[in-house]
Amino acid sequence: MARNKKNKGGGLKGDEWLATYADTVTLLLTFFVLLYSMSSVDAQKTKSISSAFTSLMSGQSGDSIMEYNMYNGEVPLIGGETEDPIQGGEELTEQRKLYNSIKEFVRDNNLQDVVEIVDDERGVAMQLRDNILFETSSSDLREDSKSILSKLTSVIEAIDNPVLVEGHTDNRPINTSKFPSNWELSADRAVNVVRYFVEVMGQDAKRFSATGYGEFKPVAPNDTYEDMAKNRRVDILIVTADKEES
């Protein structure tokens, strides 16, 4: 019958590491318990994330439910409301309020297919492709585009901020008797949009300015037809108050 040999010389048995290991595990467990006790679960945010995920999986539109604000970490909720996760409840910036309001307006008026809302360092821009407003190589407003501009007038007249209308083209050259280059084409398109707001819709001319940038401020490379179409656009930019003061 085999017997266990005893270490009569008082040397190491080989299992001394177990005590150190047990102490390390205990310390780690204590550390994580401490972290959990110091944290707080935001029930409202968890509910919002759950709702957004449910909408996404069911195929419903949920871009306004779960759109993360890269400026200050806000998460807009259903119906345009915004949750501010910062303790102390800092107010939304003027630009973020305007962005949310315009996006809700565009959605409520079914303009998502013709108007894109863009955050700009100067404010919020309502971006329209050139084929919505004009015929090819023309600066005359299409008749069916005027109803779109008329609806956007409601956004413009609701606030007193300056409005910058900016025309853009792709990099294909133009050389006609009326438009020797893309500078003239983009500038004339911007001017005609401003004139519609002022002369037809009765807006205050002092608030508006028109600028043509030609092909020199693209939003995409001019190497495909789709990207060229993105560059041919008119931006109706509302300058936010916080940008005016800076």
Rank of each mutant, 00 (worst) to 15 (best):
E74L: 05
E244M: 14
S58H: 05
M38R: 13
E90T: 10
G167C: 06
S209A: 15
E215V: 01
D113Y: 04
G11T: 07
S48V: 11
D120L: 06
E104L: 13
S50Q: 14
D170G: 02
R96G: 08
T20P: 08
L111S: 00
L164M: 10
Y36K: 10
L128H: 01
K13C: 06
D227R: 08
R107I: 10
R107Y: 09
R96T: 12
E67A: 11
I132V: 15
V25I: 14
L18W: 14
G202W: 03
G14V: 05
E74K: 08
E157C: 05
P85N: 05
N7R: 09
E199T: 09
M201E: 15
S55V: 03
D144F: 05
A52F: 09
V200E: 15
Q44H: 12
S138N: 09
G11C: 00
F31A: 11
T26S: 15
E91G: 09
S145M: 07
T169H: 01
M126S: 03
S139L: 03
N7S: 03
K6H: 09
V155G: 03
E91R: 12
V124F: 08
A125D: 05
F31T: 13
V115Q: 00
V193F: 08
M70S: 10
V219T: 14
S145G: 10
M70N: 10
L35Y: 12
K5H: 10
M126G: 02
P173Q: 01
K5A: 08
V200M: 11
K178E: 03
S61T: 12
P173F: 00
A241I: 09
G9Q: 14
T93V: 00
S48A: 14
A2N: 05
E166P: 02
K243S: 12
T240L: 02
K97F: 06
E16A: 06
S154M: 10
G62E: 12
P221V: 10
L92V: 04
F31C: 05
V118A: 04
A210K: 02
K13G: 07
G167Q: 04
G88Y: 05
P180K: 00
T30H: 13
S48T: 12
L128T: 01
I117G: 00
K230V: 13
M201L: 15
S209C: 06
M126K: 02
G14R: 07
F197L: 04
L92M: 13
M66K: 05
E143L: 11
V118H: 07
E104S: 15
R207V: 06
S138F: 04
I49H: 11
P173D: 00
V198H: 06
E90A: 09
L111E: 02
D113E: 10
G11L: 01
S55I: 03
Y36S: 08
L141A: 03
I159Q: 15
G88K: 03
Y225L: 15
W183C: 00
V239M: 06
G167W: 06
E74Y: 10
A241F: 09
T136S: 12
E199L: 14
L98W: 08
D144E: 14
D84F: 04
R96K: 13
T46G: 10
E83Q: 15
R96V: 06
Q44G: 09
V75Y: 15
E135Y: 09
P85D: 05
D23L: 14
G62D: 11
A187W: 11
I159W: 13
E135W: 07
D223K: 07
M70K: 11
Q95E: 09
P180R: 00
E121H: 08
D227A: 07
Y213Q: 04
